[in-house]
Amino acid sequence: MTASLALGPTPDVPLSRVNPVAQLTAIVVVTLVLLTSLDVVTPAVVVAVELCLFPAAGLTHPRSVWLRTWPLLVGATSVGLVNLWLGESGALAALGLALRVVGLALPGVFLVASTDPVRLADALTVHWRFPARFAVGALAALRLVPLLVVEFESVRLARRTRGVQAGRNPVARVRLLAGIGFTLLVGAVRRASRLATAMDARGFDSGVVRTNARGSVLRARDGWFVLAAVLVCVVAVTASVLAGTWDPVFVGG
């Protein structure tokens, strides 16, 4: 669990060299295509290509692959089962929907595995004019996640010193967890106020237009990456049309 919670600087992997906004653009393209396809061939082609990207995202060890992907596998299985049971279109359609979940989720896994949140924030503010104060505010808040994980354990033990323990009673367990969560939230909100004071002390609210010390550069390879994503989608849809399975839906329709 703690491996996936490590929010420090991300290791440098091949995919890190693609600008985060290029990755995001590719994700949007793939997401749009998958969301509008309800067949099995389109997601199958997309997922097949995505599987080839694991090494580029530095996910080569089976353990790290499993840690990053098991939640989405659980999600895909449950979507597949619900549609198999309740849908009228049969097993192949259900498999398609499950594959679609995988195809939608994997690009996110790659982005997270290869991209430092700071680089992502830099790219969003530099290229997409995302408001810098909010991006930095989000980064500052992200720093608190590892602290929350450490404090969780301390607060849990502290409950026992007060005579509070859940034992095997599930209701008591939920109440205990909620209590711990509340204590952590009080601490986090207080810390947010102090952090805001410290940020303003370093001129965060000065009203001056912020500069960006690290910058974010778009290169030719970023364009190629997006183009490759578009090509994969074109191939996937073409294959689906040729196989006679293409079944587009339009959101809301």
């Binding site: 929010l7 420090g8 600087p9 430092d116 949140p117 700071v118 930095v136 980064l139 500052a140 992200l142 720093r143 608190l144 602290l147 810390r191 102090r194 952090l195 004071t197 410290a198 940020m199 002390a201």
Partner: peptide, 14 residues
């Protein structure tokens, strides 16, 4: 300014 709690003053990961 330098205040009490170090974790409430650092903003970035590096």
């Amino acid at each position: 300014l330098l205040l009490q709690d170090p974790d409430s003053q650092l903003v970035m990961t590096r």
